[in-house]
Design a protein around this nucleic acid. Structure first.
Lengths: 157, 157
DNA sequence: GTCATTGCAAAGGATTTGCAGTTCC
DNA sequence: GGAACTGCAAATCCTTTGCAATGAC
């Protein structure tokens, strides 16, 4: 189902959040994206529609939505925080070339056995698998890099 | 086997790295730790022995060792970077209370099937499972917090 | 009307960079 | 001797905080 503005506003109300244009736009942008955008990505995406929007508001909004349980922080590495509105249990694949993150919905991964070798009193509540590798495009660059006589990296941006 | 200074220095030589007292001390501290320390942790640990050591050097050394493949960056969340000299394939458990990281060596986790639903041309090269939960000590605090009439958090530091 | 939300500016913390002096090979 | 390494300081980047003005309910 497409998430209409009414859907979003109702969702906010259910969570006890005020519904403002900025907040709605930020959440909508996140819901519509599968790219696990950063705060700045969202800012760039919503900014054209709301030129007055400040990056600070994006951070604030994301922290509110995260506290309300409407979005998750998906952190790959310790660099900038990335966000995800996909709340169903899933895992991620990260391309080590372009740093893009894809969702992995494979249900087999949701049935891993508890790991052995932990202290008895450690209680596992959740887990996530992070696959790393190279997407098609980045593999091509890698190959041309490897075979290139100069050994130089292809232009990356 | 205990990693002697000679072992370390030979390792450095094999990787084409110069062997300096600071570098050796930093690497040794990391090898001897299972706590996945941050750069600052290592700085604090080595500092007493090398009072002239600068935090910058720790960062520089860690990046050199990482490039050489002698240490791995283990990033849980997007906060400060944490490092690990344990190169054998393993996974991690993170306590959401104290943020401590434990190694999980369960070999079953090293045989996960490739996930379904990926683009055909995506090549997975590795993966890591990050378990989250609460260690014994933090579970106790949680329970006492939950049952405490005031609902206040126990003093955390 | 009240309180959450917003925007702006400034602070904060982790990490990187520039550069001169030193040390290892 | 030359290149890599070190230390210090300053810069950078992402994120948070303070505060006054605005807007939702």
């Amino acid at each position: 189902m497409p998430l209409t503005l009414e859907n979003i506003q109702q969702k906010f109300r259910e969570c006890g959040l005020k519904s403002t244009p900025q907040r709605t736009a930020i959440y909508q942008a996140l819901v519509q994206s599968t790219a696990h955008p950063t705060a700045e990505d969202l800012f760039a995406q919503v900014s054209p529609t709301y030129p007055m929007l400040s990056l600070n508001t994006v951070y604030y909004t994301l922290s509110v939505l995260r506290t309300a349980g409407l979005v998750l922080e998906v952190n790959i590495g310790h660099d900038r925080a990335r966000f995800d509105a996909n709340l169903s249990p899933h895992h991620h694949v990260i391309c080590q070339g372009c740093q893009n993150i894809l969702d992995v919905m494979d249900p087999r991964l949701n049935r891993l056995a508890s790991p052995s070798g932990l202290p008895d009193d450690f209680e596992i509540s959740s887990y996530q698998v992070a696959f790393r590798g190279y997407c098609g495009a980045c593999r091509k660059s890698k190959i041309s890099m490897t075979t290139s006589p100069s050994g130089k990296r292809p232009v990356s941006s």
